[in-house]
Amino acid sequence: MGVKMGFENFNKVLDSLKENYKIYGPKNIESKGRFSDTDVVGYGEIDNFDEIVFDKKSYFSPKEIIHPIRQTLFYFTDGEVKESKVDDKKVIVFLRPCDINGIKRLDSIFLQNGPHEDVYYKRLREKVKFFMIECTEGFDSCYCVSMEANKTDNYSLAIRVNDNDVYLDIQDNEIESYFNENGDEIDFKPDYIKENKIEVNIPDPESLTNEVFENPIWKEYSQRCIGCGRCNTSCITCSCFSMQDVFYDKNKKVGERRRVWAGCHVDGFTDMAGGHTFREKYGDRMRFKTMHKINDFYKRFGFHMCVGCGRCTDVCPQYISFSKCINKLNQIVEGDKNE
């Protein structure tokens, strides 16, 4: 169903939806930027249409809506364990095609990576409906076309903002009922970006041999990377976490167990009992992340983990470009083939 309506009518629909849904989208967050008194675009709960930022890339991804930064799994006392609860309200998220494809990657990790589903992820994920923001131009650091993450039909509603009107493609009967008599029925389907400013050439996974693992390219990142983990926390597809017990009293018998975001670039992530640590060098961590994003995950699921949103490049204080890393890796592989 295609619908055209003005901003005012769309706001009325959002007001109706808020009775049953929490609505999230990219919004301007004041004074939370990386520099003093600067703003940043991140994800938060939306009260009206005017709050949604359509013309800028969000600094943070919508990942934390379904994979929270800190998530309480259960509470415990001396002789009892009680599972945590979640809000009864369903969730609507305004997001771009690359992020919808990013959540597909999270679904693969949490729901399809072995015989057991992650119930804590699933109970949040099954509440979510996607309102896809049409994206036809992208941003300077994007390379979603190369990663085949620029398109999707996995949405309840797609939206194009044009002058004083919005154009909608509604694919969800439950959502469609909110738009009855609030707009004009038209033929509309969203367009997708066809070419980014950046093109990435992904090496054939079969060509990533042990020799590539030992290539001097990774030493460059040992010198540049500072292990801050911003690339992990900004990435829509990074899913790693650590476990944390928080105690409410001194005898440590009352408290809660949480899982908390972690990442392969962060110090302590590979620490083991006995004082053993893997990948102490930052270049080794960069190698691990790169191989996971364009090699290991692909071999398991048939598509690449990275979706080319470019957020890791945007947030890196050392100006490390992940797209350039992939292209350098491909040049090494192609050079080996030609020798």
Rank of each mutant, 00 (worst) to 15 (best):
E51D: 14
Q223G: 14
L208C: 08
C225A: 06
R259V: 11
N338R: 00
G79I: 06
I236F: 00
G275H: 07
D271W: 02
V53T: 14
W218K: 10
C325L: 15
M286V: 15
T270V: 02
L124V: 10
E137I: 14
N9Y: 13
N101C: 08
M291Y: 11
T72Q: 14
S222G: 11
V200L: 05
A158W: 10
K63C: 08
S242G: 14
G263R: 09
G263L: 13
I320F: 06
N196E: 12
C306S: 02
K293N: 13
D15R: 10
R311A: 00
D140M: 09
M272L: 05
C312N: 01
I170V: 05
I170P: 06
G25R: 00
N330E: 09
Y21H: 03
S31P: 00
E64L: 09
L124I: 07
V119T: 13
Y167G: 04
I320H: 07
F188R: 07
R224M: 15
G2V: 15
P26S: 03
D184A: 07
S16Y: 07
M291G: 14
L17C: 03
F247G: 05
N28H: 03
D184Q: 15
S31I: 05
G263Y: 12
E45Q: 03
I320C: 10
P205K: 07
V266D: 07
C144P: 05
E181N: 12
Y43L: 10
V41P: 04
G229H: 12
E148S: 09
C235H: 11
R125I: 10
K324G: 02
T290L: 11
G33R: 01
N20R: 00
N180G: 01
V166T: 09
S108R: 04
F74M: 05
F35H: 09
D15G: 11
F247Y: 14
D169C: 05
E174Y: 04
Y120R: 12
F54V: 08
K12G: 08
I46E: 01
N154S: 14
